[in-house]
Design a protein around this nucleic acid. Structure first.
Lengths: 247, 247
DNA sequence: AATTATTTGTCCGTATGTATG
DNA sequence: CCATACATACGGACAAATAAT
């Protein structure tokens, strides 16, 4: 996130306030001149920020009325920044559930497309990513990166830039949202992800194999199983750490 | 779309040029001062437009370098305006296919959630919408509206605001994209949608019934069948009109 | 390593348009 | 029709960052 310039700083401040509910839908923002004075920036900066928020449909400006916060249903939820701000909300279990539901619908479907549309290069790239994953079985940090890239290689093989874009945005938000949620539960900075292990690796291999075999239905199913299994591990992992509370 | 102010006009002009490929990724835009002179608007307006485009990640500005078009993979595809501009491209068959693939993955999945999460009010609203649909069997114009609202009532019953937002955006883009595609093939202004008929109505009823019965798997399947069937009708409908060419 | 040129970023005084009362 | 309040629009000035020399 680039906070180099004043516009971006104020954009994130106001965007966060809206998505976090400090500024409620229907509520009016101060007029440009007042905002400018309050935040100690020029009217130019304020206007640019309002345009950026309006592009995400968080606010709407009309003459005389002023600028008001739009209802949540109008928001452009699938904007990276909106999802980021939403991910930061504590007690956001419902949000995490919603994200997970979308992923569970989309990523397996993307595998079906990948089985159908993957090119030679796609297959090769997937295999390279899998080898990296396999090689990092004993390096948790490296595993996380390799896992991310492996999934990306699978998604890209769908050759549908709309799904690729959507899942990329989604995965980022999911990661951040899990981070917030689990840090809210306990203060430890540890990752909520289960460490690498043979079972999970096998499940990754099964997805890859199905795609190489052009078996769409199987690829979809194997990805669904992988995601639900990982989800389950995260949950039990988390419960174990909170319940037992060895500290 | 509000084209009341200069910013919105220029925003759509430039956004369209980028998404349509007139301005290619990597290419630089004229500097603010030049754009201002070229388009006959103030620098303030130009700067606001650039912020709006940057919010959609179509462009990126850096000091000294100037403003350049981002690669397609960075674009915020799931922005209403970006999808609208993309829908306007003729020969956009691939785009339409991509949209359809996402819908085919998401809307059936949303039905599964609806079966699980629908409240009493949701069910009641769905039933009201169905009755409107049934009542408009002999009024094509009314059918289109009722059909839209019926699907919306189903989607809303998922009670997942992320899926609702996504499908709303998607359906709008799909409609526009179909419009462009079929108007490109033949000049007639007729809609590409098959007229209302009993079979399609029954398929709608089946989805509703499965949701009322809380049968998620069935609801998903019935929606999948409905969407593929309608898709098939549109295609054959279209082929019939172009091949035979009765005119 | 220092200088210069270029472009975005920032500030502000002012003017216009439009809707409300 | 006038007054008010706000967004919209204009443009001159300067600051900051960085590419090229």
């Amino acid at each position: 996130m680039s906070l180099q310039n004043l516009s971006d700083q104020l954009l994130h401040e106001l965007g966060r306030q809206i998505v976090h509910g400090v500024l409620q839908p229907g509520q009016s923002l101060p007029k440009v001149e007042d905002l400018s004075a309050m935040k100690g920036v020029s009217r130019t900066v304020v206007r640019e920020v309002l345009k950026s928020l309006a592009a995400r449909r968080l606010i709407e400006s009309t003459t005389k009325i002023g600028t008001r916060v739009c209802p949540r249903s109008n928001w452009q939820w699938w904007d990276r920044d909106v999802l980021t701000w939403a991910s930061e909300v504590e007690d956001n279990h419902a949000f995490l559930t919603n994200l997970t539901e979308v992923r569970l619908a989309l990523e397996p479907a993307a595998m079906e497309l990948a089985a159908r549309n993957a090119t030679e290069q796609d297959i090769q790239h997937i295999q390279e990513c899998f080898e990296r994953l396999q090689a990092s079985l004993d390096d948790e940090e490296e595993w996380v990166k390799a896992d991310y890239d492996f999934h990306l290689s699978l998604i890209q093989a769908s050759n549908n830039e709309l799904i690729i874009s959507l899942l990329q945005t989604l995965r980022l938000a999911l990661e951040r949202s899990r981070h917030t949620t689990f840090h809210a539960i306990r203060q430890s900075p540890a990752e909520p992800f289960p460490g690498p292990n043979e079972e999970i690796l096998d499940r990754h291999r099964a997805v890859m194999q199905a795609i190489c075999d052009k078996d769409g239905a199987l690829a979809r199913q194997k990805m669904y199983e992988l995601l639900t299994r990982v989800s389950q591990l995260i949950t039990t992992n988390q419960q174990g750490k909170t319940k037992k509370s060895k500290y």
